[in-house]
Design a protein around this nucleic acid. Sequence first.
DNA 1: TCAGAATGCGAGTGACCGCTCGCGTTTGTC
DNA 2: GACAAACGCGAGCGGTCACTCGCATTCTGA
Lengths: 221, 221
Amino acid sequence: MSVDQEKAGPRRQARGERRIAQLLEAAANVFCTTGYTASSTNAIAREAGVSPGTLYQFFPNKEAIAIELGDRLIHQMRETTGEALAAVDPSTPLEEAIGTLVDRFTAFSCQHPVFFALMHGPDIPGRLTEEHDALHAHLLGQVEALVAAFLPGAPAADVTRTAHLCLGLYKAGLELVLSHEGAERDAYVRELKNVLIRYLEPLLTEYRDRATADLTTTRTP
Amino acid sequence: MSVDQEKAGPRRQARGERRIAQLLEAAANVFCTTGYTASSTNAIAREAGVSPGTLYQFFPNKEAIAIELGDRLIHQMRETTGEALAAVDPSTPLEEAIGTLVDRFTAFSCQHPVFFALMHGPDIPGRLTEEHDALHAHLLGQVEALVAAFLPGAPAADVTRTAHLCLGLYKAGLELVLSHEGAERDAYVRELKNVLIRYLEPLLTEYRDRATADLTTTRTP
DNA sequence: TCAGAATGCGAGTGACCGCTCGCGTTTGTC
DNA sequence: GACAAACGCGAGCGGTCACTCGCATTCTGA
C-alpha cells in the first residue's frame, strides 16, 4: 500500500501549492464581498493575478474552490471549538464558561470573516451545505453535552432546544459584533455574554432546585 | 394637474391587475424556494402559467418584481409593527409587552414566509436592500423609543445597542420558530420570549434603582 | 360597430459565465 | 543537457438567462 499520498491527482510542485494558497485567498476575498453565486471564477482568477485556465489547473470546478476553502475553515473551526469546549466543565461558574466560549468563538470569526459569508449565504453549493450541516450538528452535539452537564436531569427535548437557542443567539450576536469595531464591538461582546448568561442562569437554578427537591423528597418521604 | 394617477404607464384593465397579482404570487413561491438570484423570470412566468413576454408586459425587469413584492410586504409589515408597538407602553409589564410583540411579529412572519426569504438573502437587488434597510431603521427607531421609555435616563448609545440586540435576538429566534412546527414551534416562541425578558429585566431594575438612588441623593444631599 | 389600446404569446437575441483546449514555459530528475 | 511532467496562458465553446419583437387576440369607449 502506498503511503504519503493524500489524494489522487498530479504530484504538486512547491509552485503549485503556492498558487493554490494564492487562489484560495483570492477566492476568500471575492466570496466575502460578492457571495458565492455572484462570484465568477474569472473574477477569482483575476483577483489572484492568473488566467482562468490556471485556476482550472488546480480546481476541477467552481464548487471545488468553495469546498476546499470551506474544508480548511471548518477544520480550523473544529479545532477552535474543540479546544474551547474542552476547557469548560460543569464545575466552571456559568459566567466564566460563557465568557471563555464567546471570547474564543468570536475571535475565530473576526479572524476569518469568509467563514460567516460562506456558511450563511442561501446560495452555497450542495456539498458545502452538507459539510456545514455536519459542522453545525457536531457543534450542536457538543453544546448539548455541555447543557446536559450543566442541567442534570433535563429532558432531552429541552436540552436540544436550549442548545439550538444558544447557537442561534450566538450567531445573532456574532453578526452584530462583526458589524462593529473597537469599543463598540467589545460592548456587543459583553452584551452577547449577558444575553446567554441571563437566559441560562434561571435554567441552572431551576434544575438545581428541582434536583434538591427530588433529593429531599427521596430522603424524607 | 391630473389626479387619480398613481404612476406613469399604461392604464390597466381589471385583467391586468389580476395578472399582476397572479405573477407576484408566483414570484413569491419561486423566490421562497429558490431565492432571488437563482430564480429565473421564465420560471416565475411558468409558475404563473403565462409566457415570459406577458411577464414583461407588467414588469420592466426582474428586479422590479422583487421590488413590487417587497414594497407590498414592507407596507404590511409596517402596519403590523405599528399596531403592535402602539399597543404597548412603559406602564405595561415587561412580560406582557414582550409576549404581545413577539406573538404579533411571529404571526406575520409565519403568514408571509417570503418576507424572510427576500429580506435576508445576501443576493437581493440594490433597491430592495435600501428599502429593507429603511424598514430596519424604522423598526429600530420604534424599538429604541420603546427601550428608552422603559429605561428612562439610559445613555443613547446603550439604548441603540439594546434595540439592535433585541431585533437581532428576535430574528435569530424567528429563524428557529419558522424551522419548526406545531408544539415545538410554540416551545421556541416561549423560549424566545424568555430570552428577551431575561435579558431586559435586569436592565429595567438597574435603571429603576439608579433613578431611585438619584432621587434620594438629590433629596438628601 | 369599430378603431385603438391593452393583453398575450414564444421563438429569438445578446451578454455573461463556467469551463476547455492547444500550445508555450518552467521545473525536477537522471 | 535531455526528457517528462507540472505550470501557465487566453481565446473561445456551449449553455443559461434576462429580456425583446412581431404579431394575434381581447377589451374599452364612443
